[in-house]
Write a protein that binds this DNA or RNA. Structure first.
Lengths: 219, 219
DNA sequence: ATTACTAACAAGCGAGTAC
DNA sequence: TGTACTCGCTTGTTAGTAA
């Protein structure tokens, strides 16, 4: 019965969590990497255990996950939430990169400076530590929901508008700092870190050194 | 290879996501509902696939999930987030109950009244619909993170303090309304619903009718 | 107390096929 | 197009046991 959660999950992703959706055993099998026959078997077994209910027609069937089935998925989800909400559970690795990022520029503007002190609780060192990370490492940040990100508002000064940015609190070698990302900019494969300290000096870092950034909190 | 995610998840829940943790094959097997031998086999197979790394001692072993292993879990988690973030994915069922809840009392106070209009976007009907739900249905609300709940602040009036409350936007038969819960109160097994409409009349409800509440948004 | 081997067994899979 | 049988075979599990 080890296949049950995987199959339920596939059905839920097809929308079967709250309504009947048309499901073909061939298509379901393809999605799960198993044969049409296996998909059929699984649906039969899961219907027998009361995890799904089915409506059979001549040209196919509709499937909906039952209350019990959803309860099972809900418990799975709760487990994953525990795993990824645990502090330090998510780590991004990359290499120290040189060059000034956009973030550096921001730190000189009082409008950002004071917001960082207010919202992150530290006066930022005047410079960012840049970390080159792969696409897959960067993708880990998508786990952090918008509500858990700290928003640095836009403001006007010197006759122009400075755009908003987003911060995510992290730790590097147990030093509290934060990722800062301009809201309207493409991902360049470089993370910019702000901190009260001169991280490069404090941690004796040089370009190319491998380094890990640990997310502090989520949800 | 269907056992892999379940086993990785069990290891992650034991803290193996970011450090080596002592794991006994007997204990792991018990947690997974399999034999000691099976747990041993799984660890061997997962080490061979590079999903975990192990340090063997004489009296046991330490296990840590690898980068690849965590990536696999992260993708699982992303799937579950999609499932449970989909509007309408979570449904609480219960029966209509009579009697005045605490919520009713609040609605008469202008302090709450205006906050509800401001934060939920409707002027509440002067009364709550009470729905008796089981413990397990109530537990579903724990999926809604604090940031997604709408906070009704406490305020002072008539020489006393009115405590804060929390709202969760929901739909009942496609009518937008909200669960309201006093912050400092025990769960009584009754959900209180506020709405712009007189729900009981609008939906022709009487005590004991079965009814479903659908969560509108999360995260 | 551990882990992990071997060997017998069971569960799950899928090709072929019927409907 | 569909679903779901049978049945041979593979994969995963476990008891017994060694280290």
């Amino acid at each position: 019965m080890n296949f049950i959660t995987a199959t339920l999950k596939a059905l839920a992703l097809r929308g079967a969590s709250n309504r009947y959706v048309p499901v073909s055993t061939r298509g379901l099998g393809r999605g799960l990497g198993v044969s049409q026959q296996t998909a059929s078997n699984r649906l039969i077994a899961m219907e027998a255990s009361g995890l799904i209910s089915r409506r059979r027609g001549v040209h196919g069937q509709d499937v909906m996950i039952s209350k019990d089935g959803m309860e099972l998925l809900r418990r799975e989800f709760a487990d994953y939430q525990r795993i990824f909400t645990e502090p330090g559970a998510i780590k991004l690795s990359g290499t120290v990169a040189s060059g000034l990022g956009e973030g550096q520029y921001y730190l000189n503007k009082p409008g950002y400076h004071t917001q960082i002190l207010e919202k992150l609780g530290f006066t930022p060192f005047n410079g960012t530590l840049n970390i080159r990370v792969s696409e897959s490492e960067m993708a880990k940040l998508s786990i952090v929901p918008p509500e858990s990100r700290i928003r640095i508002d836009s403001f006007r000064a010197d006759g122009r508008t400075y755009g908003e940015a987003e911060c995510i609190p992290v730790k590097i070698n147990d030093i509290s700092c934060a990722i800062i990302m301009p809201k309207r900019s493409h991902h360049t494969g470089v993370l910019e870190i702000i901190s009260a300290n001169h991280l490069r000096q404090e941690l004796c870092l040089k370009d190319g050194d491998t380094i890990s950034v640990i997310l502090e909190r989520r949800f």
